[in-house]
Design a protein around this nucleic acid. Sequence first.
DNA 1: AGGTTATCTGAACGTTTGTTCAATATCAAA
DNA 2: TTTGATATTGAACAAACGTTCAGATAACCT
Lengths: 195, 195
Amino acid sequence: MARKAGSHSEITGPKIRAEAQRLFARHGFAAVSMRQIAAAVGVQAGALYLYTPDKEALLVDLLKTHMDELIAAWRAISKSNDPTARLEEFVRFHIRFNLERAEAVFLSYMELRNLSPENFAVIEDLRKTYETELEAILKSGQDAGVFQLPDSKLATMAIIAMLTGVNTWFREGGRLSRDKVETIYWDMVRKAVGA
Amino acid sequence: MARKAGSHSEITGPKIRAEAQRLFARHGFAAVSMRQIAAAVGVQAGALYLYTPDKEALLVDLLKTHMDELIAAWRAISKSNDPTARLEEFVRFHIRFNLERAEAVFLSYMELRNLSPENFAVIEDLRKTYETELEAILKSGQDAGVFQLPDSKLATMAIIAMLTGVNTWFREGGRLSRDKVETIYWDMVRKAVGA
DNA sequence: AGGTTATCTGAACGTTTGTTCAATATCAAA
DNA sequence: TTTGATATTGAACAAACGTTCAGATAACCT
């Protein structure tokens, strides 16, 4: 028994990343074994090493891909020049994107401590890049006199934490639709920045 | 070699919980071995089992103790009848208490997934109890007409997420003191609830 | 001083861990 | 149809895992 019928790296590769993300998010990086991932994919543990040099690289790949896509998706929709409109875009985008990728978000916030210092620095840098996008909006609004903020850096952290928190309680088919949640959060953010 | 000089359960017991908390917070529950905890305490792994029936019980003990103390500490200071004053008390209390116990807070938000269903339910119930304390403040303010909230449940989750987020970036000796941070966050919360 | 209890060691247990690799079957191209 | 590249198995490795326990020493009580 060796190569399996219908086996292709373009199929197995993504499948490994998908199952690893699912399992890491559910049980935690350290709690999931390579054999568990392999079983979920439908291969033996040894086969995983055709796709990743080791377990940590698998995690780094997931985290980096997520952060890259997050930043790219935001830059693809960011348009408005009006600070208030741009802030609303950010609020709605962040909630929507994070809800669509709950597992990746969970990983990005939880498993940084399992990274080597070099890998940690890479992910942290991407996170900072994203945060700076929001901070730039807040500053531009402050300069234009439409926002009243005691501290733009703290406001950045506060808003991101608040928005990301939606992931911890939101359940599809619950009392409120995604769109309604976006609207309610935008209302709170708008008031908080004094716009 | 058997019992060590100066050995006492009143010393070793707390020491085990303290080191376990430190290590779990730093590396994650699954990533820390009983031998690592024992080494940090200065005993052999077998000695830990005089203090806990198993590894999960050690984690549950830490989580439950933290939640109990959080709720007790809040109820010990909660006094004001004015909704705005009470909300300010809550904001300042939450930031202060959570910064003082960063490790326990980190654990409480990260390691629930490593609990058995029964233990999970216990901790989740305590968390809900705490959240309800904030929601009651928001509702009383809304009834009194001093807060304008689109949704008191969402506002509860949003405010708690925002406040807890301070733990992810605050560093002692940084640009801002704890008191200054409390004041800035209170300003944002106050505006967000329309008070 | 002697007996009892509390505390800890150190070795052992069966499992599971991440990772490597020779052997082998399938796929794609010629 | 042959050939070479690709994809996978399954066994093996040493190390580490959570947990148990008989034996040994220190502390406490009378």
